[in-house]
Design a protein around this nucleic acid. Structure first.
Length: 504
RNA sequence: GGGGUGUUAGCUCAGCUGGUAGAGCACCGGACUUUUAAUCCGUUGGUCGCGCGUUCGAUCCGCGCACACCCUACCA
């Protein structure tokens, strides 16, 4: 290879080749990646602070600013040009003229500027003014190319709409689509809003293991991994529940954790293999208290983020202003289907028949509660558009929840549904160590019998309960799904920066 | 896992029941010192997702594969 040969990578298109050639020119001129530039001004503040002033007033004020950002639009008109740069807060227009930026030090700067590309990152110093049409603009006196962009940006008007590229190359999506940036800014605000809410109610933020020797706290298939030094198999956690309750045993009465859970199950618009949950536990409370608290938390967050207690999700309104409905499984079935009588819904053989007729699955050895739950899922769940707490979950599907004092077959448990999907799940915790041991044994037996999602027997957790856990309420809120509602996102992938996909 | 739809230039998209491809933006060259998706003129850019088949001839028809999206199932 000789020095004169241009390094041309064959699978790249001509646009990238041209940009590489431009970069080579920059390298030949000196430092192609200067890092001594600090912006002191940001687009959003400038736009807000000077919106009200007219052209003449701006002239009098004569305000100097220093900005930096990515060049998104460029209009060259001979010896003068307009360019729009985008910084982390928004966009602002630059007015770049040959006569102002060329100097003895660099008499070629303007002709160099004309060769800069959309996507390049610039720093600029200049004076604010308003154009004839009233747009706030910086009359540039100094400009520098900070980072050369080698890849062309998507089309300036239509942006990037290919879903696959949006997910695989989120960085491009974020550069060109304001809605995407907005969604993820809201996500961040929702999480910090929840964190503030919890801390203001005396909860302690904690972190518990992501690697579990025994997966527990939920019914789900785990991911497996291996620790080399300990030479032991481990599982990515499916829920933090059992660890958080150990902390309540330890005397931390109010704890919460916002973190990832991993479940080795199918993907869908509502399921990602790793998803974010907030789980919280409060000693000396029960599921009634949890419902009030969860309602307050979600109402506050929804209102803080959207500025309203009415949220439009996929064209339909969700009303967060009123107190959330509370229905039992049976009440919900009756409310959304007029086909059944109350007496039929406590008839096991009727329920089995009905479920089969609706295409559901009714296994042989299931109790009344589980059948009611299945029927509820078939006929009512999708209709629960307005925030609704469903209560009276059967013991057999709630191995960690306290049984009701009134009816030993049901638990003091609720699930919160909004827009037809589960958003939260909470219950009065089972703090009877002997009962918990019995329930674990039943789960372990179910696992033996082939139920892949049944729980393991966790002896250390039982030992912890044997020291005594105060009566406690605990709840998990699905953060991704909450973010979907508040940002009107149809798919969970739209609220996760880097959703999992098969390799390209 | 099952079903449906899609994949054409860097991006956004056309492409006539089959004759080896077009537009806009971007890029390159030229004109232009208040533009607004700037405008005007002239270029460049393609293994039509991949493979096999049918055909004189396939972006187009058939089969298979890959990836994506939607529905469905498990799940939060």
């Amino acid at each position: 290879m000789t020095d004169k040969q241009e390094p041309i990578i064959q699978d790249e298109n001509t646009i990238i080749a041209e940009r590489r050639a431009k970069l080579k020119e920059l390298r030949d001129l000196g430092d192609a990646f200067p890092n001594q530039f600090t912006p002191t001004d940001f687009a959003k503040n400038l736009q807000a602070n000077f919106a009200e002033f007219d052209k003449a007033t701006m002239e009098e004020k004569s305000i100097s600013v220093i900005v930096a950002g990515r060049m998104m639009l460029k209009r060259v008109m001979g010896k003068a040009s307009f360019a729009t740069i985008q910084d982390t807060t928004g966009r602002i227009q630059l007015y770049v003229t040959r006569d102002l930026i060329n100097s003895e030090k660099n008499p070629e700067l303007y002709s160099q500027f004309k060769k800069w590309d959309l996507g390049d990152i610039l720093g600029a110093t200049g004076k604010l003014f308003k154009t004839n049409t009233g747009e706030l603009t910086i009359e540039v006196s100094e400009i520098i190319l900070l980072t050369k962009s080698l890849r062309p940006l998507p089309e300036k008007f239509h942006g990037l709409s290919d879903q696959e590229i949006k997910y695989r190359q989120r960085y491009v999506d974020l550069i060109v689509n304001e809605e995407t940036r907005d969604t993820f800014m809201k996500r961040s605000k929702i999480i910090s809003g929840i964190r503030d809410f919890m801390i203001s109610h005396n909860f302690l933020e904690v972190e518990t293991p992501m690697l579990h020797p025994i997966p527990g706290g939920a019914s789900a298939k785990p991911f497996m991994t291996h620790h080399n030094a300990l030479d032991m198999d481990m599982y990515l956690r499916i829920a933090p529940e059992l660890y958080l309750k150990r902390l309540v045993v330890g005397g931390f009465d109010r704890v919460f954790e916002i973190n990832r859970n991993f479940r080795n199950e199918g993907l869908s618009v509502r399921h990602n293999p790793e998803f974010t949950m907030m789980e919280f536990y409060a000693a000396y409370t029960d599921y009634e208290w949890l419902m009030d608290f969860t309602e307050d938390c979600i109402q506050k967050v929804a209102e803080d983020i959207t500025g309203s207690n009415l949220v439009t999700y996929q064209g339909k309104q969700i009303d967060f202003s009123k107190s959330f409905d509370r229905l039992t499984l049976v009440q919900a079935i009756l409310k959304y289907s007029d086909k059944y009588k109350e007496t039929e819904l406590v008839d096991i053989s009727f329920l089995k028949q009905t479920i089969k007729k609706l295409g559901g699955e009714a296994r042989e050895n299931v109790g009344l509660g589980a059948l009611q739950l299945t029927l509820f899922e078939l006929v009512a769940e999708e209709h629960l558009w307005q925030p609704t707490f469903i209560v009276d979950y059967p013991v057999e599907v709630s191995p960690l929840a306290r049984a009701s004092s009134k009816n030993p077959d049901i638990t003091e448990r609720f699930e919160l549904f909004i827009a037809g999907r589960e958003i939260a799940n909470g219950f009065s915790e089972l703090n009877d160590a002997e009962d918990q041991a019995k329930r674990f044994k039943m789960q372990a037996a179910a696992k033996e019998a082939g139920d892949e999602e049944a729980m393991y027997y966790d002896a250390d957790f039982i030992r912890a309960l044997e020291y005594g856990m105060p009566p406690t309420g605990g709840c998990g809120i699905g953060i991704d799904r909450l973010v979907m509602l508040v940002t009107n996102s149809a798919s969970i992938r739209d609220v996760i920066f880097f959703p999992h996909m098969r390799p390209e």
